[in-house]
Design a protein around this nucleic acid. Structure first.
Lengths: 241, 241
DNA sequence: CCGAAAAATGAATCAGGTTCAAAATTCGAC
DNA sequence: GTCGAATTTTGAACCTGATTCATTTTTCGG
């Protein structure tokens, strides 16, 4: 019986239509302006139909972030494909990937930040939450492989920590710095001019602290800056100042 | 003319009443359940009066977080008063203060997280935003003094970074880890059992990377765990496992 | 082709933040 | 004391926008 399958396919296609359209509307007006009625109308469906797919508006927003994750993951995969550096350099490249993703998809960073708020999170369906959390798996696998490569190359000793626990350090640092950077006006108030450069500096510091070889001389930001710009060019095909 | 002053005083008293009451209502039902009408009613004022103080609900929420900051700051001051450790240990104590604050005021951590969302932030008044950002000043001064003490004691060389830029590393790490920890289910998904212990581990790693003396042996979490529990007892008057 | 079951519809409902015209109060002047 | 302009308070009405659900339409096996 192909009927069931067809229905399922149609349902998925429609869900994709909703999400594609929402994507476009968000790109135009920001996610705060997204409205359920107009979204449904823009897809030539009734509002109620939208609610056959998404338990609530928050649920839809979470679905959006889970979906964007594929794009985000691609940034990580580019790092994985890149073989032009040491494991340590590839770890730095992961951070560059984060920044690059944030630069190219600012709306999505904001949306993600918003959705991870408990207030929003708890308005979503169990199923979507599970789906969203599952995203962390492939991401951390890529990072874990980098850590493992370093260990196998003898560059790093995790000293009892699992691969994931090890990579959670750099991840948190990156996450925290970008979160603080998102707060409008905070860096200015702290008189921090270049938070991006500072992130890499602290990242290198952390990796040094782990004893991740080859150690980097911290007094000289230039070396790291050069590395970052090399990564931008070789991995993300961009030349920026 | 004392009339003006009295009015001003009464106005401030009323604002405090609103915030106190909101505080209580949030403690009871969480901030998502807070409603403007019922809040005004609970204070025996009309809804409109509430709007003489707060531009919007988001503005009120931001005011709440700015206010709680005094409590938060007190946690930092306790660390400052504590003279039972090296500068490095006091830096760790700052992280303990963060965790302790989060443990005792979970609603406020969630509220803060929510308010710092761009979507919410932009609904607030310029004045409140300025006030909120001003909070970061006294906090970072306390941390800066710890860093400076370390430098003066010859324990640390910031290698060209300002005090604030230096402390932004540990701060980001702490912020990032707690932010990730807030996401329900993420740590479970990553099979991280004890994210708190991990935070301290990475923090020590970062400080080691900075060359902050005396260096700590990372293989042995026990030493750090003992320190943390000593800080909890001496600074925050708690004994926990 | 029938009728039961499933799906779609969109107007009505509901929630709750915000406004604003009317009522009440304050305050200085006489 | 009291008058009236200015200020403040009031709270019902308004408005936006998410969500629901009674009704209509479509689907599909027999």
């Amino acid at each position: 019986m192909g009927t069931q399958e067809r229905k399922l396919r149609e349902r998925e296609a429609r869900e994709a239509l909703f999400l594609d359209t929402a994507e476009r509307m968000i790109a135009e007006n920001g996610f705060m302006k997204l409205q359920m009625g107009p979204l449904a109308a823009a897809c030539d469906y009734a509002t109620g139909t939208l609610y056959q797919h998404f338990q609530s508006k928050e649920d839809l927003l979470l679905a959006m972030t889970s979906r964007e994750f594929e794009v985000h993951l691609d940034f990580f995969r580019k790092v994985e494909r890149w073989q032009g550096g040491t494991p340590r350099e590839r770890m730095i490249a992961i951070a560059v990937a984060e920044l690059e993703f944030a630069r190219r998809h600012p709306q999505h960073m904001k949306l993600k930040h918003y959705v991870l708020t408990e207030a929003v999170w708890e308005q979503t369906s169990e199923a979507r939450r599970t789906e969203a959390l599952a995203c962390s798996g492939p991401m951390s696998e890529i990072v874990n492989r980098i850590v493992r490569d370093a260990v196998e190359a003898g560059d790093l000793d995790t000293r009892g920590l699992s691969l994931t626990a090890t990579s959670l350090g750099p991840w948190s640092l990156c996450e925290g710095m970008t979160a603080l950077g998102q707060v409008q006006g905070l860096m200015e108030a702290l008189q921090i001019a270049d938070s991006e450069r500072l992130l890499f500096r602290h990242l290198q510091t952390l990796l040094n602290g782990m004893g991740w070889q080859p150690l980097v001389e911290l007094s000289d930001d230039g070396e790291t800056a050069a590395l970052v710009s090399r990564i931008r060019k070789e991995v993300f095909d961009i030349s920026r100042p």
